[in-house]
């Protein structure tokens, strides 16, 4: 944990050492029928921390991240998000969902709504904001992700990179404390990846707590405070980027890195 201090120069005035735990997973397990996708996953993520989750395909990264906002339901163990435990309690699920934003690999924008409506729909009906205020917020968010001029287009008329940035804006519109990214750049052409990563970096700098599943090692090295490596539904190794990329302890991590780098 001490390595985090070195990062803080890059990442502005954050005090990760004294930060609150915002996501706590403890012994989380999950089965699909007879297949165990998560096996006793335990981890803690602090406020304002940027965590990158790595791992081979099918290792349960998506499943884990989706458990955190209850798109999947874990069967054993506990997940606490910002002091709220994810259980069958309806109130808790609603609270967690509105505090955790999520960005998907395939963007999943609503094709029948304009970009502006895509962003302002949830603030209006879930956060119960007045329409004018929500649309103003949508405009400023589009400004922030760099595409203010696309507000009245439909998602089908945008490029992949623009769509993913709209998706980020849509998640931000709910003013979440935590953002989850599930391979946000893997459906994009190389020249579009950068524009999305730039938005994500800006977000990280602004102090957002982020959990990112990605295969972009550059992003991981530059931005991550912590890297978790998963395999077979388990977290095999956790550490800072320096530690992780230079001298990983586990054999499996080494193997993975040798394949990917």
């Amino acid at each position: 944990m001490t390595d985090n201090e070195t990062k803080s120069s890059v990442r502005g005035d954050r005090d990760l050492a004294n930060a609150q735990d915002i996501i706590v997973c403890e012994g989380v397990s999950k089965w699909f029928g007879d297949f165990q996708a998560l096996n006793n996953v335990s981890a803690t993520i602090k406020e304002q921390e940027v965590v990158v989750v790595l791992g081979p395909s099918g290792s349960g990264k998506s499943t884990w991240i989706r458990c955190i906002n209850r798109l999947e339901q874990h069967q054993e163990g506990r997940i606490m998000v910002d002091g709220v435990e994810l259980s069958n309690d309806l109130r808790n699920i609603e609270k967690v969902r509105s505090e955790v934003g999520m960005v998907f690999q395939m963007f999943n924008l609503f094709p029948h709504l304009t970009v502006r409506d895509n962003i302002s729909l949830a603030p209006i009906w879930v956060r119960k904001k007045p329409r004018a205020e929500a649309e103003e917020q949508a405009s400023s968010l589009l400004e922030r992700v760099g595409i203010p001029e696309q507000a009245d287009k439909f998602p089908g008329q945008l490029s992949g990179g623009q769509q993913q940035r709209v998706a980020i804006a849509r998640a931000l519109a709910m003013e979440p404390k935590i953002m989850l990214f599930d391979e946000p750049t893997s459906a994009l052409d190389p020249e579009m990846i950068k524009e999305v990563l730039d938005v994500m970096k800006e977000l990280a700098l602004s102090g957002m707590t982020m959990m990112v599943v990605t295969h972009e090692m550059g992003f991981a090295k530059e931005v991550a405070d912590k890297i978790m490596f998963m395999e077979g539904g388990q977290i095999v190794e956790t550490g800072t980027p320096e530690h992780f990329f230079t001298n990983p302890t586990e054999e499996r991590t080494k193997l993975f890195l040798s394949q990917i780098l």
């Binding site: 798109l71 609603e94 969902r97 934003g101 999943n108 609503f110 029948h112 949830a122 998706a167 849509r170």
Partner: peptide
Amino acid sequence: VTRGQHEAAEAVGMTNAQKTFFIVLPQ
């Protein structure tokens, strides 16, 4: 309507009714 649409609606905190009414049925 793809599963991704359902998930996106759930992820922004819509209730089932809101998801059905605003996202799923129009499509």
